[in-house]
């Protein structure tokens, strides 16, 4: 018989608790996004709406310049599709973990906050139920929203020096995600180098520099990933590893 004092696995409360570390991390990333979006020219209200409806750091960061520069809806949709394509893979994988308590409607709700980190926690379990998943997505969602509110408001009042310093925060997080695996795995490093070279060509070469940012992200990342996938196809084991 299980002890009463221990938190039961696969419950709403356990989900909430497992979501707390994700929530804390999200508050900081969302804070940086809030500052970035407001300093780009969005209102705090618009900034918070983006976070509460998209719930994806890289996608949102790419979306803001496209919106501000008056890019086409196709550019926006296509860039979001490519940047967020990894979630499709995570959703495929997560679908195998959901137990019989999860209904079709629940799947539509869980999908909304199936982020990298939520996926990582859920996939560390054998199987997850409806109430656990609801808890696990609730705390990160609140952290993401709250962090954006604080960042958007701070972005409106903080001095330019501080805004400038925080302007690099979200890129710092991207660097923190990419560098450690690139250091361990030469194939990832190869892919990163190709991507960076292409990205710089699109910034500085005449003609190429006229391509809109959303398309640059798509073209460069697809080419780099295809080359890496063709030259260094992954082994079964690596497929299990996620960001």
């Amino acid at each position: 018989m299980k002890s009463r004092t221990e938190i039961q696995e696969n419950t709403f409360l356990k989900g909430i608790i497992d979501g707390i570390p994700i929530c804390i991390g999200y508050i900081t990333v969302a804070f940086a996004f809030g500052i970035f979006a407001v300093s780009s020219g969005l209102t705090p209200f618009e900034t918070v709406l983006i976070s509460m409806t998209n719930v994806t750091s890289a996608g949102q960061l790419a979306a803001v310049p496209i919106m501000i520069s008056g890019g086409t809806f196709f550019e926006l949709a296509a860039s979001q599709f490519v940047i967020n394509l990894r979630y499709a893979l995570m959703s495929v994988s997560l679908s195998q973990k959901l137990d019989s308590s999860v209904t079709l409607l629940d799947r539509f709700i869980i999908a909304f906050v199936n982020t990298d980190e939520v996926f990582a926690v859920a996939s560390s379990k054998k199987a997850v139920g409806k109430t656990y998943m609801f808890g696990l997505i609730l705390t990160p969602f609140l952290g993401w929203s709250a962090g954006t509110v604080i960042g958007a408001l701070a972005g409106s009042i903080l001095p330019p020096l501080v805004i400038s310093a925080f302007g690099i925060a979200i890129y710092g997080m991207f660097i923190a995600i990419v560098v450690p695996p690139a250091r361990e795995n030469k194939n990832i490093l190869f892919c990163v180098i190709i991507a960076v070279i292409l990205s710089c060509l699109f910034r500085w070469l005449p003609f190429l520099s006229g391509v809109q940012t959303g398309f640059v992200i798509i073209i460069c990342s697809v080419i780099a990933s295809v080359i890496a996938a063709l030259l260094f196809p992954i082994k079964e084991k690596e497929a299990e590893h996620e960001l």
Partner: peptide, 12 residues
């Protein structure tokens, strides 16, 4: 799909 996230973040 394995390489894509690293490429996207690097390009961005």
């Amino acid at each position: 799909l394995y390489y894509m996230p690293y490429a996207v973040l690097s390009v961005m």
